[in-house]
């Protein structure tokens, strides 16, 4: 890609988000698309994060609240299942954690450098029924 400076920028420039013709984008999933370098998809904003959300599949009920309310298209849902988080585009706002309805939550915020396996091992456990009766 040719990088033009601000003074070489021409009026009427067209940025193409895809390689070649792209006519039916709404029916092509992101992994099957041929993004160009002009598409912001090929850039990362991972360095904006101080905290990252981690996903615990065990508690997830696939309600998709995190998917609809994610402002950064970073919740990856395929075939009606939540399958993971796109850490290249997640800015770490924490909305997904707030809207998660399960107890304990299926998404929690952890410091950026936290190891995923360590985080999963210290995840809050589901409350047992006996404990509730007491």
């Amino acid at each position: 890609m040719v990088e033009n400076g601000w003074d070489t920028f021409e009026i009427g420039t067209i940025l193409r988000p895809f390689e070649g013709p792209a006519s039916d984008v709404a029916n092509i999933l992101p992994e099957d698309r041929s993004y160009t370098k002009s598409n912001s998809f090929s850039v990362s904003v991972a360095d904006w994060r101080i905290e990252k959300p981690l996903f615990n599949k065990e508690h997830c009920i696939d309600c998709q609240f995190c998917w609809i309310y994610c402002p950064d298209m970073s919740i990856i849902s395929r075939d009606k299942k939540m399958i993971g988080i796109d850490y290249d585009h997640c800015k770490g706002c924490g909305i997904c954690v707030e809207v998660c309805p399960t107890t304990p939550k299926s998404l929690l915020m952890f410091p950026e450098q936290k190891d995923e396996e360590a985080a999963l091992s210290e995840w809050p456990k589901k409350e047992k029924k006996e404990a509730k009766e007491n």
Binding site: L29, P30, S40, W67, D72, R78, C90
Partner: peptide, 12 residues
């Protein structure tokens, strides 16, 4: 609804 293919990209 979650099967929609997004047409707005991240890293904005």
């Amino acid at each position: 609804f979650s099967t929609s293919a997004e047409r707005f990209e991240g890293a904005n």
